[in-house]
């Protein structure tokens, strides 16, 4: 499975490389006595900066390189593994390069963007390792398409059942089916926000997790007797089953969104980082 084994690729080869890089940088920093406040302009500062800049360029290239599955040298898994571990090491190298001297300037902006890229990458590792199993746990052995078919099946069943009830109740139920919303925009997908509505008693009301329509049915049911009550009971069962399926779909969409959305930060910010890195390096030498 690619989504977990990139961490342990080649017996954690790149983990050891990254640890060694981080440790060497830290040791140099600890034993370096710069004779001035630590900053990026000491010999160690320049060295760490050079290593960091090369890492940034190389990691960016790796990010692109790992899309080509079969071309070139190495395996995708190997590239991902290197990207992840060396990216983590960059956090140490880059931080030590600053000498913990921060301010409102392009240099600190470059550092901050680097942190955003790396931290979003850390989230990506979590997403790629933890979320897929969450999704599998949710769905059992079923695919999302199968669950959708089941929802459609429930819809058909419910539409048949409503034929026997009065028009007010039936229009409320059909409106709840029609106005069920799955997914949506970024916030809806990422946070599982449910914007479903229902037309109950001529009024559009929010129906998140089908709560409003189920409540309406419970109220209606309690006033009815005999055959109608039995029919409403069947409808409620079907609606409840449908709600359960929708919950699974919604959680799955959430997990799926979270697995991919971090890249929307990771990639564009990387390009911001590249530009600010160029500005950082050049400006330092313009005002040498």
């Amino acid at each position: 499975m690619i989504h977990t084994s990139f961490l342990s690729h080649d017996r954690f080869k790149f983990l050891w490389v990254a640890l060694a890089l981080g440790l060497i940088s830290a040791l140099f920093y600890l034993f370096h006595d710069p004779k001035e406040p630590p900053n990026g302009g000491t010999w160690l500062g320049y060295s760490l900066g050079t290593v960091g800049a090369i890492l940034i360029l190389w990691l960016t290239y790796l990010g692109r390189r790992k899309r080509n599955f079969l071309n070139g040298s190495g395996t995708v898994k190997g590239w991902v593994s290197a990207h992840v571990y060396l990216g983590a090491a960059l956090l140490i190298v880059g931080t030590l390069h600053t000498g913990f001297q921060f301010g409102w300037n392009i240099h600190t902006v470059a550092y901050a963007l680097m942190c955003v890229v790396i931290l979003s990458g850390f989230y990506g590792i979590y997403a790629y390792t933890a979320l897929p199993s969450t999704r599998n746990d949710l769905k059992g052995s079923q695919t999302l398409d199968e669950i959708f078919v089941q929802v459609e099946d429930r819809d058909a069943q419910i539409l048949k059942l409503v034929e026997g009830v009065n028009s007010q109740v039936s229009s409320a139920i059909t409106s709840a089916l029609d106005r069920t919303v799955i997914g949506g925009g970024y916030r809806e997908q990422l946070f599982g926000i449910d914007r479903s509505l229902a037309m109950i008693n001529g009024r559009l009301v929010g129906n998140p997790a089908q709560g409003a329509i189920l409540e309406y049915l419970i109220e209606t049911l309690s006033k009815e007797k005999g055959q109608t009550r039995e029919r409403l009971g069947q409808l409620m069962n079907a609606l409840a089953e449908r709600k359960k399926l929708l919950d699974i779909i919604r959680d799955d969409i959430k997990a799926q969104a979270r697995t991919s959305a971090w890249l929307l930060v990771h990639v564009p910010v990387t390009f911001g980082l590249l530009a600010s890195l160029i500005a950082h390096v050049i400006s330092v030498f313009v005002y040498w």
Binding site: Q189, P268, V269
Partner: peptide, 22 residues
């Protein structure tokens, strides 16, 4: 829209935007 990919996120444009802005 069930996937982030369905939302047609302007990733390329945004990357260029960040790059050129910075």
């Amino acid at each position: 829209n069930l996937k982030i990919g369905d939302l047609k996120f302007p990733q390329r444009k945004l990357s260029w935007f960040f790059f050129l802005t910075m």
